[in-house]
């Protein structure tokens, strides 16, 4: 890996205002190697941040550096070693993916034969096979996203910015794309900054998550911290809501605080007398057995990235 333990991106007080619109306000974050998710609703400032880091937009205030290059003076150096997959369509329809990726690799400074070799390699990795020789105008959204990703990787960057790579994909293609993003970060050894407005997606693939809201930094921490066990338990039994409620009522009588959540019963952290390792689990098993219910699932509840918005949004307000 090129980057070692040094931060890949650092920003300090980064601010961007378009007239009265505040796209980014006083953003100070650090991004390391691996996959970093950049989460926020549409208009939260994700794309603006990427464009500033690429040197395409000038910030109103603050500083940032990418791979050790200052964005103010080192824009060209940054763009030499960084890949960018934009959110919107950006492929000419009358060119084949193969030709286009070769051309884009050359535009990043690779020689003719190196560009050809890299393009073939990268197109294979993103999963464009025979269709790479067809004009891109006839591609499905999934194939277009792959071609866009291929051009971002063509010159073997040390860092890639992926702006909403799962946009417009069906669930299967979305899973494929996310797996690919994860592999870029782990197997390929390329640092990834990936944006999405869908929190659940980034939970699966990123090592670190930065949450933006209205141009403000809401939170930046390792994905694990977001998904800490909350101490609650989730129980599901075979049957319908009737069975679920029977179990819930029986457990409540034994001193557990229960509430329905979808087809499951969510049990708040057990009281001290049941907090001993496994005691609550045993109790739930016994109650289910007494009621003759088939226990389907018994698992610790974890936090979700969504909760960040609820918690921290409330604190800020």
């Amino acid at each position: 890996m090129h980057t070692g333990g040094l931060p890949v991106i650092t920003t300090a007080g980064l601010t961007k205002h378009y007239g009265t619109v505040h796209a980014l306000t006083d953003l100070t974050v650090e991004v390391g190697a691996g996959v970093t998710g950049l989460v926020g609703a549409n208009g939260a400032g994700k794309s603006t941040l990427i464009k500033i880091l690429l040197g395409l937009l000038e910030p109103t205030g603050g500083h940032a550096s990418v791979l050790g290059h200052d964005i103010e003076h080192g824009g060209q150096e940054i763009r030499r070693v960084v890949g960018y997959m934009p959110e919107h369509d950006c492929l000419p329809p009358d060119v084949s993916a193969s030709d286009f990726v070769v051309h884009m690799a050359r535009m990043s400074g690779l020689g003719s034969s190196a560009a050809r070799e890299r393009a073939a390699d990268v197109l294979r990795h993103v999963g464009l096979d025979e269709e790479r020789y067809r004009p891109m105008g006839g591609y499905s959204t999934g194939m277009k996203q792959r071609a866009k990703l291929a051009q971002a990787l063509a010159h073997d960057p040390q860092l890639v910015f992926l702006d909403e790579p799962t946009n417009g994909l069906d669930p299967a293609a979305r899973t494929d794309m996310l797996r690919l993003v994860q592999r870029i970060g782990s197997d390929f050894g390329i640092a990834v900054l990936v944006t999405s407005h869908l929190l659940g997606e980034l939970e699966q693939v990123s090592d670190h998550v930065i949450v933006l809201d209205g141009g403000h930094l809401l939170r930046s921490s390792a994905t694990g911290d977001f998904l800490q066990r909350t101490g609650s338990l989730l129980v599901e039994v075979i049957g319908t809501e009737t069975e679920r409620d029977r179990l819930g009522e029986a457990l409540a009588q034994r001193g557990l605080t229960c509430r329905p959540r979808g087809p499951m019963v969510s049990i708040d952290p057990p009281p001290p007398e049941l907090a001993l390792e496994g005691a609550a689990h045993d109790l739930i098993r016994d109650v289910a057995a007494e009621l003759g219910l088939g226990l389907m699932r018994l698992q610790p509840d974890r936090g979700h990235l969504e909760d960040v918005f609820l918690e921290e949004g409330a604190t800020r307000a």
């Binding site: 395409l56 763009r79 960018y84 934009p86 950006c90 492929l91 535009m107």
Partner: peptide, 11 residues
């Protein structure tokens, strides 16, 4: 076709 964005993200 907005491929200009891809050019400008290069040197």
């Amino acid at each position: 076709h907005r491929s200009i964005v891809l050019y400008l993200a290069r040197p």
